[in-house]
Simulated assay, not measured.
Amino acid sequence: MQGPAVMDRSSPVPLHHQLKVILTEMVRSGELKPGDPFPGELRLCEQYGVSRTVVRQALVQLEFEGIVDRMRGRGTFVASPRTTQGLVQSLSGQFEDLAARGLHLRSTVRRLDVVPAPDHVARALGLPDGADVVLLERLRFVQGEPWVLAVTYLLADTITWLRETDLTEGSLYAAMDERGTRPIHGRRTIQTRAASATMAADLGIRRGTPVMLLTSVGLDRHEQPVEYFEAWHRGDRTVFEVDLVRSDAVV
Rank of each mutant, 00 (worst) to 15 (best):
P210L: 04
R182D: 05
V6W: 13
G66A: 08
D97W: 11
P118W: 02
V242I: 14
V142A: 05
Y153M: 03
V239W: 06
Q47I: 10
Q18P: 08
R207W: 02
L19P: 06
E223F: 13
V211I: 15
E31P: 00
A131I: 05
H222L: 14
R43L: 15
S196K: 11
V226H: 03
H16R: 09
V55C: 00
L23Y: 01
L213Y: 01
P34D: 02
L32T: 07
G35D: 04
P81D: 04
A200Q: 07
A117G: 05
A231C: 04
D113E: 15
L136V: 08
R28Q: 13
L219N: 11
E178K: 14
S51A: 06
V133S: 09
K20G: 07
D129R: 15
M7R: 12
V78G: 01
H16I: 06
A175S: 15
V27D: 08
M7E: 05
L91A: 11
T181I: 14
T108L: 15
A200K: 02
I67T: 09
G66T: 01
A122N: 04
M212S: 06
P39D: 08
R9K: 14
I67E: 11
F38Q: 09
V121C: 07
R187A: 14
D236W: 01
A231F: 02
V109W: 10
A100I: 00
P128Q: 08
G49D: 02
G144W: 05
I190C: 03
M212A: 07
D243W: 04
R70D: 00
L62A: 09
D166R: 04
D113F: 00
L105R: 02
V114G: 00
F77L: 07
L103S: 01
P146A: 03
A100L: 13
R101I: 00
G170H: 08
T209G: 01
A122I: 06
E25Y: 09
V88Q: 10
F229I: 04
R101A: 08
V242R: 15
R28M: 15
F77V: 06
V88M: 11
V242A: 12
G30S: 07
G3H: 05
Q143G: 11
E65R: 04
D69E: 14
L244I: 10
V151K: 12
A124N: 02
P210A: 03
R188C: 09
A131S: 12
E96R: 11
G73W: 07
D129N: 05
D8T: 09
A100G: 08
Q57Y: 11
V21S: 12
F229R: 09
S107R: 11
F240N: 03
V148E: 01
L214S: 06
Q61D: 15
D8S: 14
T215A: 05
L219A: 11
A79F: 06
L98I: 01
A131P: 03
Y153L: 07
L42M: 12
R140P: 03
H104M: 10
H222N: 11
R28L: 15
